[in-house]
Design a binder for these strands. Structure first.
Lengths: 340, 340
DNA sequence: TGCGCCGATTGAAGCGCTTCAAGTTAAAGT
DNA sequence: ACTTTAACTTGAAGCGCTTCAATCGGCGCA
């Protein structure tokens, strides 16, 4: 089955060019060690035969591969797309290539892909995990395959990781609302068991605490961080007497913020009566009618640094020092929170 | 460099279990040929050693791989994400795995990934190409690697392909507007050199032609199919005297439609004064304030059928018949085009 | 007791490549 | 003319696996 006409091998090329097998290998890997004339002859033979080097055999013989793998939770989320782009770039910079797998919010799939990458002997693996760092990451590291975790903290000494400072992001968001003159803030977020959301709330609390009681912060809990829940939260706010409503809302995600704005803008002026800020700088929200302020996570940077770090772990071998990088989120102000 | 403690190999397992190398291989590939007791002993050894089969060596020895590759143009576009999901599924159904590469609208990257997949001796390649079918697809096929093209027509006999009927999609969109009582239609689209857009327009023209002059169709050309251009097109319409305005607009993409709706809804009632329909069922637009009608492309189906077809080409070998599948788009009506 | 049979197991060959010690050739040095 | 040296080239070993002809050992049967 499969490939009918099997492809020409290096020895076919060698025969055609009238040189030894090893010489063809040198042409491909150490052209400086080969005489000009031979180089040309071999290249000619390669072109004539349409030779394509078999990477499986190559990695087998070399004992190492030049491919990095990235497993993301949800390729539909622009944050992960940014990470992928960055990782690709970072990999390319080191002469590696990046292959992508989408676990689609499915834990089992994630495991499947990790195993697949392991079996394929990829040089290293970048993992933006489903929820927490999975056992399997530990297992792969155990037999020498570098795994770098994205967006999730990792025990020191276990391996490298890169996270974005969610607490700081929360702080920035609330700080911004306060700076815009808001005094009755609300945090709309999910259940605290989701670490990142909890941290964002804590950051907001810190900003509020800084202002010595001049600002209040209430919390509106929703079931999930999507647009429908945002609309639900919007209704909750609208149902209150005007004096009871917050004048600044920090939503734990952009989709949530979008839902809020949709509902609230029908009855209130945004941002005049009520300012809204989201989180993620999600591309799905970038074209909303009222542009929504947000906290951007440096996904691209995350991916790129991730690939670099992973590469250095692969290259340094035993004397590699695990690093834990914390990236800073940034505030992006748009119409939903800034009076014109 | 790289993997410090190199992983245990099959012969390590064999030694540990006190059996021959070939037996371990049989345990993994033909367990039915192995005695119960031996089976257990080998499995125990595998677990104890944490053995992970080397897929590179495996594919090398077998002469074929069990991995399919998918190269998409823009992983940020939900259509391609749907394709990826479908392909993944279709691959899994046949015991294959799907690896993803994102060419990011960059022709050179696309070529790089195709070559990479070729070198990695993937069983087959699914390609949703940058624009037209690239020369390289032909080249890979030339030396026996199946390449299936998505979303792009391919010369008969060249290989398999799957497309969505854009003409039909255009027809559906215009038909819908007409059925909703619209008589002065406008098609907002890009330059005709983009095949799919041209076909969508032709489909719309067919729907209009069917109504014997009762309906008019004008064309508004924009530079690109994104939201800003949509807003620009919206302004063009608003600048006209009311009587000169269309009452039904078919935008060649959802982002375009979104931009239109944003601008138009400020001055006009949508859908009462003006109905709008887009194209793609793009997730980026799914949460717009006024839900936008659209033509959905069966991306998931496309991916799944693609993976199946590719697999059959891999399996059938020489006596494979290339297929050209045309999938039907479907109409999704939402608030932007349907009076309540 | 001897023969044939069959399921289970073995081990060598080979997949296409890299690596490297050993070999070759020619130019340079004395 | 003879040794060094440098610049190339060679070819065999080995990466970890699958495959398959050959072998083994036990069992039923005459």
């Amino acid at each position: 089955m499969s490939t009918t006409k099997s492809m020409p091998s290096m020895s076919d090329v060698a025969a055609r060019a009238g040189v030894a097998l090893g010489t063809v290998s040198n042409v491909l890997n150490h052209p400086d060690k080969v005489a000009e004339a031979t180089l040309r002859r071999v290249h000619a033979a390669i072109d004539e035969l349409g030779f394509v080097r078999n990477n499986q055999a190559r990695s087998l013989a070399m004992g190492r591969s030049t491919t990095l793998g990235l497993v993301v939770t949800d390729i539909g989320n622009s944050f992960f797309v940014d990470i992928a782009r960055g990782a690709e770039e970072g990999a390319a910079l080191n002469g590696m290539t990046l292959l992508l797998a989408n676990s689609d919010n499915d834990y089992a799939k994630q495991e499947t892909y990790l195993d697949l990458f392991d079996q394929a002997r990829f040089a290293g693996i970048l993992l933006a995990p489903f929820e927490a760092a999975p056992e399997s990451a530990h297992r792969l590291r155990g037999h020498g395959r570098p795994v770098l975790l994205l967006n999730v903290a990792v025990p020191v000494g276990e391996g490298c990781s890169i996270v974005v400072d969610n607490e700081q992001g929360g702080y920035l968001a609330a700080r911004h609302l306060i700076d815009e003159g808001r005094r009755r803030l609300a945090f709309v977020g999910g259940p605290d068991r989701l670490e990142p959301l909890l941290e964002r709330r804590l950051g907001a609390e810190r900003a509020v605490a800084e202002t010595n009681g001049a600002v209040t912060l209430e919390e509106i809990i929703v079931g999930a961080v999507n647009a429908p829940e945002g609309r639900a939260a919007g209704s909750i706010i609208l149902d209150r007497a005007p004096a009871e409503r917050p004048d600044g809302v920090f939503a734990a995600s952009d989709l949530l913020a979008l839902g809020l704005v949709q509902t609230l803008s029908a009855a209130l002026r945004i941002p005049d009566d009520l300012a809204v800020i989201g989180y993620d700088n999600n591309s799905a929200v970038r074209e909303s009618t009222i542009p929504i302020s947000t906290i951007a996570q440096p996904g691209r940077e995350m991916g790129e640094i991730g690939a670099r770090l992973l590469w250095s772990e692969v290259a340094d071998g035993p004397d590699h020092e695990h690093e834990h990088v914390v990236l800073a989120p940034t505030l992006i102000t748009r119409a939903s929170s800034v009076r014109r």
